[in-house]
Write a protein that binds this DNA or RNA. Sequence first.
DNA 1: GTGAAAGCGCTAACAT
DNA 2: ATGTTAGCGCTTTCAC
Lengths: 354, 354
Amino acid sequence: MAHHTLEPMVTIKDIAREVGLSVTTVSRALNNHDDVSVGTRRLVHEVARRLDYHPNAMARSLQNSRADAIGLLIPPILHRAYDAFWLDFIGGAASACATAGSDLLLSAVSTSDGANDDFKRLARGRRVDGLLLCDIQQADPRIEYLRRTSLPFVAFGRTMGPQNYSFIDVDGAAGVRQAVEHLIQLGHRRIGYLGVSTKFSFSSFRLRGYQDALARAGIGYDERLVHEGLTAPMAAAVMARLLDLSDRPTAVFASADFLALAAVKTARTMALDIPADLSVVVFDDGALVEGADPPLTAVNQPNRRLGEEAAELLLQRIARTEAPLVQRLVIPSLTQRSSTAPPREYQHVMSAAQ
Amino acid sequence: MAHHTLEPMVTIKDIAREVGLSVTTVSRALNNHDDVSVGTRRLVHEVARRLDYHPNAMARSLQNSRADAIGLLIPPILHRAYDAFWLDFIGGAASACATAGSDLLLSAVSTSDGANDDFKRLARGRRVDGLLLCDIQQADPRIEYLRRTSLPFVAFGRTMGPQNYSFIDVDGAAGVRQAVEHLIQLGHRRIGYLGVSTKFSFSSFRLRGYQDALARAGIGYDERLVHEGLTAPMAAAVMARLLDLSDRPTAVFASADFLALAAVKTARTMALDIPADLSVVVFDDGALVEGADPPLTAVNQPNRRLGEEAAELLLQRIARTEAPLVQRLVIPSLTQRSSTAPPREYQHVMSAAQ
DNA sequence: GTGAAAGCGCTAACAT
DNA sequence: ATGTTAGCGCTTTCAC
């Protein structure tokens, strides 16, 4: 391979000159149109290769009105707890795009101020063929905007109530229900609930899953056991209060890894053993959860796969714009580890029964 | 605000028709050229706003030969341990791009097969004005390729030996040196070294930092204490071997969080106390490290800031192509936590001295 | 089979 | 201060 300096930019014109044909023919040859003789096609491809020709994506997009790229709008990172999730998700989306020959445009535009200028620029700038929206708000102005501009989009996440847009989401209710039912089956009757900010719509779904599981088992809902809107600094105090109750919970569900870890730590401080005195289940698996002492039983969502599917869904919608709404719920699974066990009293009962 | 359906696409032409001027004038008005009357400028902007006009990025790029976007090539994720790092880094890069009005194109193209077709398409497709390269290999064909095509790029990371490209990197040697010197100051003389794959060029720098610190303190290098190329499954066994030595180390440096955690766990299994019997320092801070029991003393690199700086550097180079090489080393700091203390014997000596 | 011409939306000469 | 012309690189009629 010769080591000559490459042209600053090789265009279709250069190839045309080289092979002594018109740009039209070269274009068609490169796109493998069958009205070009096989010989010409081979020749053109060969020269293109030799000159290291790569089409100008901009010119092509302008002509085809296709950008061959999608935009991913990730929420500004909120807490380290979500780190692992988003990286996996992004990786999945990037991988799906690569497979489809699309590029992935990442935008960290703030989601809170709705359809702001940056958002509109992205939505209407024809730089992307569609958008992947995350962190959907209850009445999200971005959705209304996109519908008006008829730009294909897929939401990751959904709001409560009826949805009239395509989305993919984790079935948080089902996930928590599994977790709580697991605890109930172990014999727990008093189960605490530690939730994150209620601004996230997934919070509502998860709480509902908790309530459903209790209701099905005929266990009364005790709001003293339920705490939402928790942040890292608040976690320990709330947990301590929970454990100070005369009829303290024998198990607790935590909606994020940092809440679960705080729960474990606080319980230890109060000389309680995990899981003998307190069982802990956490939503969203990860290294922090798996590596905890003891390793925590967790609701497990396929982070990377979610990113892949979201991107795939969007790319499909771009390909067939008139496609009907797709609303996909992924049911997370429960990974049982060492942080859950029957409650002490129950253990006694069982021993006695034996 | 009327709720009418927006045009599928508003161009400069529509504005021109609306205001009764030529497209040229509209273009110049939109770009605030001062050869357009103030009144016209205001009018044009107003109409543009009313029609919700946003320029077609492709057309603009084609004309200006600027994409207003940069590409970030992240290595395929290797181990969960690096999760937090890359997410922070990407977030930083995205943020810097947003500030500069550029977009960030994410590509997860495999780095191992060098300047492959996907890479060339990105490099020559004029879709990005420059590239941010990660995971640089010893003789990286991508660098040679980019130099030939004269596409601006900045590497995150560097290879050993003389470098003739712009990069930003963490000074791994300095980081480890600090860590080891901290241990030496505490009185440690036998310090273990747990390293990850030597394929990463940062591995060499880090090991050198370790060797330097020892040499400066006049401590002999004992290769029985040094283990590189470690993966998660191997960590425990290697650590056990280390602790089984008759003259076992009283401290250990770990090049990744999972190695440090394995070290802690293994030591505990052998009834050793952290930090009384074994001090542990880890490279690269994170939730896993901070939340460990005990919280680990760590070499702390500003992940997010690194991403920001890398992107900023690249954008600068794009703005001034003829700019001289920039090679920036960021010195990480040491965060002292509870996993490091004087060795037992030394404590005795100190007590005796008192 | 191949080529000439037009146009995607935008901006930059070069008029006037 | 505004309009005319041309062209960025590519694809697609419509001829031949």
